[in-house]
């Protein structure tokens, strides 16, 4: 049963991240997603300190705000201090992450987080934290409910505002011209990324969130030319990575999060080579066909 719980949690994280990741990579904001996933750490620690628990709404809100603050800071350093974008991203997230780690060390007694868990989570402990109803029934691990809620929220968000997200991603100038605010959707999407990062943090850690935001979406991008299918394929490849990753970790007796990231990478590598539409082999074959055509 435990492995099922872990796989379900990982799959929920992977699906949610996969959906958002599609928009991130199409907006060329993959590294901003990376930055946010690191930068929410101090928010999580502070929320921990103030609320005293790890599953409160305060924590989501607080860390979500830090996520927006990150986006804002990156833009501030870029526009007001005229720092080039790449450096502005690098400076902002490393600083916030460092603050987060130091806070953890300072309040080691009060905050139930450790540095390693920050990086690669403790998804193996998911089945230990279960919800038991008043009448004594065990309804499964809490993490599944938390991630499930976030997944549904993000799903509803994307379905309800698909049109706006699609347009502001593809052609921001046109969107603005017809009165759809690109800034608003930018910040909403970043809030969604922050919320997802926070919710996934303790199960999979900062780096795996990044891997799941980017790798499945990039994999899907090499397979399809249709945004809706891209999201579906990203979700599926996230789930496949979760399942294979889990068993890889069990086999090697290593970190589950690390193994899932590894599998997401392997899946991407396979797609890169064998994708029927944009894979390297297919391109080679195509090129051969074209070059042999005149002789037919």
């Amino acid at each position: 049963m435990n492995d099922i719980y872990i796989i379900i949690t990982a799959s929920l994280v992977a699906t949610t991240c996969g959906l958002l990741g599609c928009f991130l990579i199409l907006r060329k904001m993959a590294m901003v997603g990376d930055a946010i996933s690191h930068a929410v750490l101090p928010g999580i620690v502070l929320a921990f300190l103030f609320s005293g628990s790890r599953d409160s709404v305060t924590m989501l809100l607080g860390a979500g705000l830090i996520g927006i603050l990150t986006t804002f800071l990156i833009e501030f350093f870029h526009k007001k201090a005229r720092l080039q974008t790449d450096a502005s991203i690098g400076v902002t997230f490393t600083w916030l992450f460092a603050v987060g780690v130091v806070l953890i060390s300072l309040f080691a007694g009060k905050v139930d987080l450790d540095q390693d868990c920050v990086l690669y989570g403790e998804i193996a402990y998911v089945p230990l934290d279960i919800i038991i109803l008043d009448n004594g029934t065990n309804i499964g691990p809490k993490a599944i409910y938390v991630m499930g809620t976030i997944f549904l929220l993000i799903l509803v968000f994307i379905i309800a505002f698909y049109k706006e997200l699609f347009l502001t991603t593809f052609d921001p100038a046109f969107a603005n011209a017809i009165g759809i605010s690109t800034a608003l959707w930018h910040y909403l999407l970043m809030s969604a990324v922050s919320a997802t990062t926070v919710a996934s943090f303790e199960s999979v850690g900062a780096i795996l969130v990044v891997a799941l935001l980017i790798a499945p979406a990039a994999t899907a991008y090499l397979i399809t030319d249709n945004l809706k299918w891209m999201m579906v394929i990203a979700a599926i490849s996230g789930i496949i990575s979760s399942i294979t990753g889990y068993y890889l970790a069990v086999w090697l007796d290593g970190s589950i999060a690390g193994a899932i990231a590894t599998c997401a990478g392997i899946l991407f590598g396979l797609t890169l080579v064998f994708s029927p539409t944009h894979g390297l082999v297919f391109k080679k074959i195509n090129a051969l066909e074209v070059s042999t055509k005149p002789s037919n």
Binding site: A30, M31, D34, L252, D253, A259, T262
Partner: peptide, 27 residues
């Protein structure tokens, strides 16, 4: 070689390599 842009490629390689590293480290 592909239509994937640089920022995505960086993020992808970064997180996947790190994931592999973590896996090996825990092993």
């Amino acid at each position: 070689k592909t239509r994937i842009k640089e920022d995505t490629a960086i993020g992808l390689i970064l997180s996947v390599f790190f994931g592999i590293g973590i896996l090996l480290l825990t092993v």
